[in-house]
């Protein structure tokens, strides 16, 4: 039985950071893939930004994936942040306290040198 694909992603890599742009709904059927993707990005960049503007649904398994990725990022000294979360996604991140782990207190402008 083919599983319906409910979410999409795009990765933009630049010199100083990688941006993961998500769209759709992620639940337990996508949480493992999402975590794998995040871990891969964390292994290859100094900063990873997850843009959730077009993401309309996450559940507790996705929250778990985000927390696991956060620990991986901390261990590797990588800056992992979530931006543009809205509606249900934002509410769930806020009420569980996870947004605070990932809001990158001072995101800062693009680095220039």
């Amino acid at each position: 039985m083919a599983l319906e694909e409910t979410w999409h992603w795009r990765v933009d890599v630049s010199a100083d950071r990688s941006v993961l742009t998500l769209a759709g709904e992620i639940d337990m059927s996508g949480a493992d893939g999402f975590e794998h993707l995040l871990r891969e990005m964390i292994g290859q960049a100094r900063a990873v930004e997850v843009d959730m503007e077009r993401l309309s649904f996450i559940d507790s398994t996705v929250l778990g994936a985000l927390v696991a990725a956060h620990h991986e990022a901390v261990d590797r000294g990588v800056d992992l942040t979530v931006v543009n979360a809205a509606n249900q996604v934002r509410r769930v991140l806020d009420m569980t306290g996870i947004m605070q782990l990932l809001d990158g207190a001072a995101p800062g402008p693009p680095v220039a040198f």
Partner: peptide, 18 residues
């Protein structure tokens, strides 16, 4: 109960209740 922000799992029932 609400899992601490750093805990990976155990949020499902808490969310359902909240």
């Amino acid at each position: 109960a609400l899992a601490g922000p750093g805990e990976v799992g155990h949020r499902g029932l808490w969310l359902a209740q909240q």
